[in-house]
Design a protein around this nucleic acid. Structure first.
Lengths: 195, 195
DNA sequence: GTCTATAGAAAGATAGAC
DNA sequence: GTCTATCTTTCTATAGAC
């Protein structure tokens, strides 16, 4: 136990990211000062710079981690062969994952403009990979004749926007359970791509 | 022509709102300074306070005007009796109007958190009125047996999110014309609420 | 109606003590 | 690893000249 008083790098780093995510998603990146983050964590402002070179890198770290986890979680899902079953899996996965990470999802849509062009491009390419996963399902179903969409690219964007919208109104303990919401959205998506 | 040099109230007011909308939508409310708005307009920062009591009121004015114009434009649309025809009208109206006012739409989704609680509530109640217009169409079609949605409230939120999403990717002069996009989205919406 | 000038507060980031 | 102190810049908003 030779550790010096006030040395907590293994917990302060994650705490900084957690508080930054909470504050950024609530007030917006530009409206949150480094001092405000430090206060929430319980350290002085200067201490933050031991964990991030600057404010923008802190934001980028949050968005990059979120996108990596999103892609990894989707790739870990069981992979159904049937296009309709895969599409249902995607719909339920997207709603579930996004509701569990509401803060990060909000950030990843709202705060992109605060990234440098290079960092912006990196996040966008990860998002594109995720969109491509859905488009591949739609193409497969289209080829098999079980889906009939006029344009798979537009259907991809339409479905993702529709599903992500759940985050704007869903509240735990509200009128509908998360599972019921998933079922209702799946019903609408299923019909929207039906022949 | 007794007007003093530098007196332009009838054009400076609208210019301030236009430049503020452009800058807020591009960089975010908190990231745009009053100096930056003044510079874009071509006046000094102090002159802005002849047109707005403070920065937040300027934002509120933009959002309020947008919501008022949205509601007025929808109410001015020809009102079809048939629920399916009215729904198609809503889909096309929403896409068209939102694409024409991309900056204001972006602001009205992204910058709500920068309003005071009172002003936030005023904007949200206008948004609710717009959502209610769509829900009324869905209820009417449901009662007539031409639509079959598991939950009209969720279908309302799903459809609006899907349609508003067009603004995130549509570019004039791209692969698809605006009319073609409207038709494709209408096809998907039509099927999603079909029995 | 717009300008210059400025008050007063707060921002991002760094230096050096401990 | 964290703190205190501070540099430098920038911010919102106001006062008073023209």
């Amino acid at each position: 136990m030779a550790r010096k008083t006030g040395s907590h790098s293994e917990i302060t780093g994650p705490r900084i990211r957690a508080e930054a995510a909470r504050l950024f998603s609530r007030h917006g990146f530009a409206a949150v000062s480094m001092r405000a983050i430090a206060r929430a964590v319980g350290v002085q402002a200067g201490a933050l710079y031991l964990y991030t070179p600057d404010k923008e890198s802190l934001l980028f770290d949050l968005l990059k981690t979120h996108m990596d986890e999103l892609l990894a979680a989707w790739e870990a899902e069981p992979r159904a062969e049937d296009p309709a079953a895969r599409l249902e899996c995607f719909v339920r996965f997207h709603i579930r994952f996004n509701l569990e990470r509401a803060e990060a999802v909000f950030l990843s849509y709202m705060e992109l403009r605060n990234l440098s062009p290079e960092n912006f491009a990196r996040i966008e390419s990860l998002r594109k990979r995720y969109e491509d996963a859905l488009e591949a399902i739609l193409r497969q179903g289209q080829a098999a004749g079980v889906f009939a969409v006029p344009d798979t690219k537009l259907a991809t964007m339409a479905i993702i926007a529709m599903l992500t919208g759940v985050n704007t109104w869903f509240r735990e303990g509200g009128r509908l359970s998360r599972d019921r919401v998933e079922a209702i959205y799946w019903d609408m998506v299923r019909k929207s791509v039906a022949p």
